[in-house]
Amino acid sequence: MKFYKPKNLTELFQISEKIAGKKYFLAGGTDINVQIKKKMITDEPIIYINHLEELQGIRETDESIIIGSLCSYQELLNSPLIAKYLPFFRASLVNFASPLLQTMATIGGNIANGSPTADVTPLLLVLDAQIILMAKSKMRHIPLRDFFTGYKQFNLKKNEIIGGVQITKNAETGYKTFYKKVGSRKALTIAKVALAGLKNSEEYKLAVGSLNEYPRRLSKIEEYLASTNTPESVKLEELLKQEITPISDMRSDKDYRFQVCLNLLLEFIQI
């Protein structure tokens, strides 16, 4: 496979432009190396990006926290900015993957891999995160919820890359928070079902992973919960059937996934 190591972002875009077909950007390598082993990647070109300073670090502006796409989970867990402004987000990251993978795995990689079961995405969705997309001479911010368009399909223009994620500092302030990931064991597990939720007296924010072709918000249930003080479980079940499309696979079956999701939803309502 052809390998490139650009010196900086400018060079990255020059290289990327010249490659017409499929290509992979290598960050921490925790997904790509598994895909190489499983022969899902054979001879597509690889562009190494993990050393690019422009995509690293965690910064603050007056209103937001900006997380570079190459930021590893360990950096997120050790960041005083994340601990100060986004304690719920931080606490939810603790059980992602394992300490060994947290060293290498990056937030941008977790999103870019596009797995329906990506751990970080439901959390970012309820925090109303924006994704920063960078191209050679342009940069744009879009809500993460508009980024996914299908299974491993993204709202991404040609030669655009994920530059980072932006979350407002008050994204979780004043909300009751909920995050649960259900898997076969605590560490190193791929979620069968994951539910993230925020609520206050006026609004509800809910997102699920592993239950659709990409992680997404449960808008109909959010609206229903905001409209009533006495949610009925029959109605929730009916809405949930419209919002999620669980599948049966090696990790679980669809009836189990549906029931667990409903149980988590009822648990969330009680908090």
């Binding site: 598994v34 190494y48 993990n50 060293t103």
Partner: peptide, 16 residues
């Protein structure tokens, strides 16, 4: 240990 932190070396490439 890679720069003092534990990693699974099966997922780390030479370039890392």
């Amino acid at each position: 240990l890679l720069d003092g932190k534990p990693v699974t070396s099966c997922l780390v490439n030479a370039v890392h």
